[in-house]
């Protein structure tokens, strides 16, 4: 069970959080302008890297805020926590 630092509540047990998959996937500005292929990419295709991954978590059992995390999908180490809407930090 990971210890996840909610930006609003501090470090809490993983069980308090809800996972939200890849971060920085925006709902398209104008879905009707997309081809079927482009729309399918938005609907179904997400990055799945082995290593650092920018992903979303929601502190669902507490403040209910979404935030972004960069986590290594091999070691499960959390490398950064940052607010929604801010750019992905560069991990050395």
């Amino acid at each position: 069970m990971m210890l996840i630092s909610c930006p609003w509540c501090g470090p809490r047990e993983e069980a308090e959080f809800h996972y939200g998959g890849q971060a920085h996937v925006s709902y398209p500005e104008d879905p009707s302008a997309l081809s079927d292929e482009e729309w399918a990419r938005f609907l179904f295709y997400r990055d799945n890297p082995k290593g650092p991954f920018a992903e979303r978590w929601n502190h669902s059992a507490s403040c209910r805020r979404w935030f972004n995390v960069i986590r290594d999908t091999v070691t499960y180490e959390i490398l950064a926590v940052y607010p929604v809407g801010t750019p992905k930090p560069v991990i050395a």
Partner: peptide
């Protein structure tokens, strides 16, 4: 509720 909050916080803040 989670659906609404997700959109509000992440897509349409």
């Amino acid at each position: 509720l989670e659906w609404m909050e997700d959109f509000l916080q992440t897509e349409w803040p």
